[in-house]
Design a protein around this nucleic acid. Structure first.
Lengths: 243, 243
DNA sequence: TAAGTCTATTGGTCTAGACAACTAGAATTT
DNA sequence: AAATTCTAGTTGTCTAGACCAATAGACTTA
């Protein structure tokens, strides 16, 4: 449970413990969590330490406090990593659809002029081009072409490309996307795309281009996606913090 | 400076005190602020109380801490209006185009079921429906239909509707939009829209629906826009603060 | 019945320390 | 001169309390 002799701070251990329960659904939105004093007694730690853990979870949007009542589980939605920027996988799951990916090709090549410009690398530098069909409930949802600087991502194997690349970047490479720029426009499906998307000629599609940036400002990826308009609506919430 | 007998929490007083110095420029970016123990001694308060103040400022992006070195002033977050949410007028200007608006109609009516739901008002409550053609460099760019609760905006005159409504809301009514939810999808232009947008049959269009919320959570407006895909690309930047 | 009062429980603020971990520069040793 | 060690100063973690403020339900009173 909680290891007081661990070099990992107690408040952090408690934080992860509660966060897990929220993410696993043991604690649902609106539930009241045990009072601070109870945590303190149960784990034989100071209440201030409990509060440090809870404060962090409140700041991250997992919990909210009400004086005199208790501390309650919030909608995990707020914790979205980057507003409006979710991976296809997460996006589909949140819509109640089952995501799947079909790899069309994965190739390593020299960066073209436009690719090098987007990724801010030298022309001719090695890049990966990953082209995939994204399915939801086994029906094509989007056609996606992603460009990655080979220097940043190292060797890219087929197994990796079949899953969620974001997860791979975060968990295996330790990269964290902090900025993204997207462009969205409407268009008509091209002939070459029709066979992949399985739509009739003349169908509308949503073109999404995204460049994602790491903390140091380097672009990690450039992605062009073509979404079926009959199946996909791009949703985005925006807000500014108080003050 | 700091009043220990005030009902205002000490940590909050200290917070405001430091925040003021940052905003007034007494403390500049990169400056190291006095060590926690110094604040504690100077104001005769506990170091934990100082830390509570500093923690809040760190969370708000005013300060950053470096273990073993000190606490430093950060670049004060730029007060972005609302990421990705600019008025048509601002949007066009930033693209180097000259915005113009042509009013199609301005009418007051009773809210339909869907309108009342979007605006969170009672069905049958008075709403304004404003339908406008948005032009850029005198060429149609979008067709826009906006719904507003009459109770919130009071009387809406034609003169007002011909300019930037956002400006009117902010400056004349004192409303400030803090949240917005947008949905974007691709479609094919409808026959009824073609004459306004001046595009051939079968042309792709970008449908944008937006609901804007005030600080108290009330929706101020619900807007449906139809943009010409051949002229308009929706651009959005996203970022998350530190972490 | 209705209104007011008490009480237990909750989170909010605050103290006065302790020791750990990290940084940078000074002092020492090799 | 270079490498190592020491030291002062910083933030980070944690304790074991104290009292305040808000809530909700039980209880009392008019």
């Amino acid at each position: 449970m909680i290891n007081k002799r661990s070099p990992i701070p107690i408040y952090y251990q408690l934080e992860e413990l509660i966060k897990d329960m929220i993410e696993k659904g043991t604690l649902k939105k609106g539930d009241m969590i045990p009072p601070e004093r109870e945590y303190a007694e149960k784990y034989e730690i100071s209440r201030m330490t409990v509060r440090q853990a809870l404060n962090n979870l409140v700041n991250d949007g997992y919990l909210s406090r009400v004086k005199g009542k208790g501390t309650f589980v919030e909608n995990r939605k707020i914790e979205q990593p980057l507003m409006g920027l979710t991976s296809f996988t997460e996006d589909m799951v949140s819509r109640g659809l089952e995501p799947r990916t079909k790899l069309l090709h994965l190739l390593k090549k020299e960066a073209s002029a436009s690719e090098s410009e987007k990724l801010k690398i030298k022309q001719g530098a090695p890049v990966y081009e990953v082209k995939r069909i994204r399915l939801a409930d086994d029906e094509p949802m989007a056609l996606e072409t992603m460009f990655l600087s080979a220097e940043l991502v190292g060797e890219l194997k087929e197994e990796v490309v079949n899953g969620s690349l974001y997860q791979y970047f975060e968990e295996s490479l330790g990269y964290s996307i902090v900025n993204a720029r997207q462009g969205l426009e409407a268009s008509i499906v091209r002939k070459s795309e029709r066979e992949y998307l399985n739509v009739p000629s003349g169908s509308p599609v949503l073109l999404i281009e995204r460049t994602s940036y790491l903390a140091d400002g380097k672009p990690l990826e450039f992605v062009k996606s073509i979404y079926r308009a009959d199946r996909y609506k791009f949703l985005i919430d925006m807000n500014r913090e108080g003050n």
